[in-house]
Design a protein around this nucleic acid. Structure first.
Lengths: 245, 245
DNA sequence: TAGATTCGGTATATGGCATATACAGCAGTG
DNA sequence: CACTGCTGTATATGCCATATACCGAATCTA
């Protein structure tokens, strides 16, 4: 509309529709990262492109490169911005198991609150400050076990990768709202699986191992990390030499 | 039936019952998938674009769309093409633990032989024929435990996600040849980590938990899945009610 | 056998993407 | 005054997936 408006009037009319261009106190790294995180939280990683973030801030795409060397770097900064370790994890817990469970709970909440994290293109091993802070807290939680440092590191790796992978699966299954998609998944499985070709899987399906009652909340639906975590922690327990009392 | 099968998968499952008609000269689905797998094996997923695969076959980019509905579908087919379950997993193993270890060994070999698998953009929960075949074999391996089907499913999920995540980490760390990059990683950690801020991590580093002796092969270097797997299996063991003899 | 239809492959174009390069205004500073 | 650096912009390159229209040949149909 307003296509043939004389050039001088154009800006006047534009001012009517968009009263204020925008109060722009200037670009900054923090504003860029914040805008990118907001976009990703709302619409997923696809909503994070240099052009879209710049537009959201009222600038041109190239302007972002004054503050960020590449999109990959921006993604890393988004991750770190979102991965602050909550304060209540700081207090040491005498019981290693509940300490680790608390750690997992906090970590899980973070992953689920920003589910784009699990879709980030992988650039390298964990190295951002907050990633290392999470590692540190988990190692601290394992301190009461008296295990060797190398073992503790492996265990933290095990737990962290497990949480991440489970969050990823949960994000995939839960992306259509309200578990609708998980129901579709289980019925789909039921149709596809041939009992002659895949007898064990067929038996599991028939036993209802994939059918979660409809009145469960998504978090209670087997997308939960708790079962797997319990197995892992049992395995860790078995590694700790029994205390002679 | 099969009402809601995603479009890409339909053909994958249909191929099971009606194998491909004839390998005539000219383009074919099999040739496309094969070329794409070769490209990915050699140069990673970045080498898989419609144009590049077409060029590798001596055709124009759009020609591929006669056989494949989208690139995503092609990626799914690549995955399934590469994920055949080896025959020696078919024989049942009376000892569930060694059965699962064999399963993991085979799965790990597949993941490491085609490390692009762990970088595939995630499209949904596992649903291709061969993915389900792997699940079936793992469930079968767990049969001697006598556990509930739902528990077995969770355990398989746990193990599979763990393997995948570990393979992903291994791919990242090992991408520059010969563990050079893992050495760089550990020295980098040593420089970054402040003992006041991250005491537990600092202690682990100082204890050498991240320093792998240079004469180890990459597979023995803590990028191994065996430690974590042993913990998981110990945890599974703890779930099995002891047999009264 | 004539006409229509289908099939395999192609040409071209659209819109998105990250980002290299060059440049314009403006701040301050000598 | 000229100079320098800082911030944001304009433009362009090359890659990407893919929609649409087309073309020749084979195959089917009347």
């Amino acid at each position: 509309m307003n296509a043939d408006l004389p050039p001088g009037l154009r800006s006047l009319w534009d001012l009517l529709d968009h009263p204020e261009p925008a109060p722009r106190p200037g670009l900054s790294l923090a504003r860029i990262v914040q805008a990118a995180v907001e976009a990703a939280d709302a619409d997923g990683l696809d909503a994070v492109s240099m052009a879209k973030i710049a537009e959201r801030l009222g600038y041109t795409p190239m302007s972002l490169y004054r503050y960020v060397n590449s999109k990959n770097e921006l993604l890393l900064m988004m991750l770190d911005a979102v991965a602050a370790v909550p304060a209540d994890l700081e207090e040491p817990c005498p019981d290693w198991r509940t300490g680790l469970e608390r750690w997992c709970d906090a970590h899980w909440r973070m992953l689920r609150a920003h589910s784009w994290i699990v879709h980030l293109p992988v650039t390298g091993p964990p190295i951002t400050p907050n990633q290392l802070a999470w590692t540190d807290r988990a190692l601290a939680a394992l301190h009461p076990t008296g295990l060797a440092e190398a073992d503790k590191v492996q265990i933290v790796l095990l737990i962290a990768t497990y949480l991440q992978a489970t969050a990823r699966l949960a994000a995939e299954l839960g992306q259509s709202a309200r578990g609708e998609s998980i129901a579709a998944y289980s019925t789909l499985l039921g149709e596809l699986v041939d009992g002659r070709r895949l007898p064990a899987l067929r038996a599991a399906i028939d036993a209802g191992a994939y059918a979660y009652p409809g009145d469960m909340l998504p978090e209670e639906r087997g997308l939960d990390y708790r079962f797997g975590l319990a197995r892992i922690l049992d395995g860790v327990q078995a590694l700790i030499p029994p205390v002679l009392s």
